[in-house]
Design a binder for these strands. Structure first.
Length: 448
DNA sequence: CTGGGGACGGGGCCC
DNA sequence: AGGGCCCCGTCCCCA
């Protein structure tokens, strides 16, 4: 059984925070490189944030004024069983049958029209059902992409398409049709999405093992999509109950490691789903992924669509969820209720998880005006710019050396103190830095 | 080879 | 909530 979740859907249109910028990776490049020219989109356009509150999500779902039109979707064996975030009273609309509907959109799309909001916001969205990975595409036809000259790309990643969708959403703020804003610069890559013109790294790899997460993140995330920050799905707490035990893979070790490997796991996972629509998985990552896709389809989404499961998303799975983040969420879960959709690490607030997710997406919204270098964080940019200004605020009191970073000074002070706290366990040799010790051990004791 | 410094990524915390 | 700072870690380059 499950109770009726109260689902809050946030998304912003071109919402940029803190100097947030989108960036458009040049076509043909699969990874971000510092030396690559990048088109900066300051996102000076609309920056409205819209909130769709779907209360109790019963049949009337979003309540008065909100019309929901569930399209074909699919039953998710896992989510319907284990997560049960599905709206109560909204039984599975359709059973996923890849044999009968192979070309069906794999996302359940709907049009949510929120009345009472300025401009009578209409938004493309999906039902809030969390689907399996085999259900993570929006229907391009439903979304009017064909009319926009953006035919669906078989097997291609859909995030840029969703960007299109978002643009449509923007355009529909005035009640216009979906086909507006075709001249929006962000649509420029729409043609790039054409199957015949899509060397964007969006092709699906034939060999999953060779699939580069950067390829995904840089293409799908940077293809003009990054100006769509802030969309959030918050599965509100308390009302969500979860049935079933923690899936065995919930604590799987496969989602550990560095960010890219996490992303790769994430992608490989989805890849497997795409290549095998019949695959049934129980990975929570899967759930997160699909949630993301739900948010993605809502409009401004991108690969950074934030899946923020509130603290009791998995009231029964908390232990697993805590373990999942490598212990990152093992602290006060109430304080870290925003989960990274990639690694499930918990953060205390939305912005933190947004920033953190750049680890996985590779997004670097902050660019140096003097050297084109880009940074994921503003303070990193500020710190970097000391390279250009020559500013060295940190001075040694013992030798008048100056440093641009506090850490440099701290490290330098060891020269004076003679501190060598890192001792080799093999030969006893001591070093001032852990990295020195590590290198020493690699070279001297690698055979041990 | 080692030490020193520069640069940067990421998390946590404070204001 | 957002910005900034501190801290830690890592990598790289050079003497």
């Amino acid at each position: 059984m499950m109770e009726l979740p109260r689902l809050l859907l946030y998304y912003s249109e071109g919402h940029l925070t803190g100097g947030h910028r989108s960036f458009v990776k040049p076509a043909g490049h699969n990874t971000w490189r510092d030396d690559q020219p990048i088109t900066i989109d300051d996102g000076s356009g609309t920056s409205t944030q819209q909130v769709i509150v779907i209360e109790s999500a019963v049949a009337e779902a979003a309540g008065p004024g909100v019309k929901r039109e569930s399209s074909e979707g699919e039953e998710d064996p896992w989510h319907s069983k284990d997560i049960q975030t599905r709206v109560a009273g909204a039984p599975p609309v359709a059973t996923d049958d890849p044999t009968t509907a192979p070309a069906q959109p794999r996302t359940r799309c709907s049009i949510t029209e929120v009345s009472g909001m300025p401009n009578a916001v209409k938004s493309e969205t999906k039902t809030l059902t969390v689907h399996t990975g085999s259900d993570h595409r929006s229907d391009p036809e439903t979304l009017g992409l064909r009319r926009m000259g953006c035919p669906p790309v078989p097997g291609s990643e859909y995030l840029p398409v969703f960007h299109q969708i978002q643009k449509m959403v923007n355009s529909r703020g005035d009640g216009d049709t979906l086909d507006t804003e075709v001249d929006d610069p962000s649509c420029s890559y729409a043609t790039e999405m054409d199957p015949g013109n899509i060397p964007l790294g969006l092709k699906r790899p034939t060999d999953q093992s060779k699939w580069d997460w950067n390829q995904y993140s840089s293409s799908a995330c940077s293809e003009g999509c990054l100006d769509k920050k802030g969309e959030v799905i918050v599965v509100d707490e308390v009302t969500v109950k979860v049935e079933g035990d923690v899936p065995p893979t919930w604590n799987a070790v496969s989602h550990q490691g560095d960010g890219h490997s996490q992303g790769r796991d994430f992608l490989d996972y989805r890849e497997s789903l795409e290549t095998n629509p019949n695959v049934t998985t129980h990975s929570p990552l899967h759930a997160l992924m699909d949630c993301n896709l739900v948010s993605t389809s809502m409009g401004p989404s991108d690969s950074h669509g934030h899946i923020l499961f509130d603290q009791v998303l998995n009231s029964n799975n908390r232990a697993g969820a805590q373990a999942q983040g490598g212990g990152a969420t093992s602290g006060n879960i109430k304080e870290k209720r925003f989960l990274c959709m990639f690694c499930h690490k918990g953060f205390s607030c939305l912005q933190k998880v947004e920033i953190h997710q750049r680890v996985h997406t590779g997004e670097k919204p902050f660019s140096c005006t003097q050297c084109e270098k880009r940074f994921s964080r503003q303070d990193h940019l500020k710190r970097h710019q000391r390279v250009h200004t020559g500013e060295k605020p940190f001075s040694c009191t013992q030798c008048h050396m100056r440093f641009a970073q506090a850490g440099h000074l701290k490290m330098h002070l060891k020269v004076h103190t003679g501190e060598r706290q890192f001792a080799c366990t093999h030969c006893g040799k001591r070093f001032t830095e852990r990295s020195y010790l590590r290198i020493h051990q690699q070279k001297k004791h690698s055979t041990l």
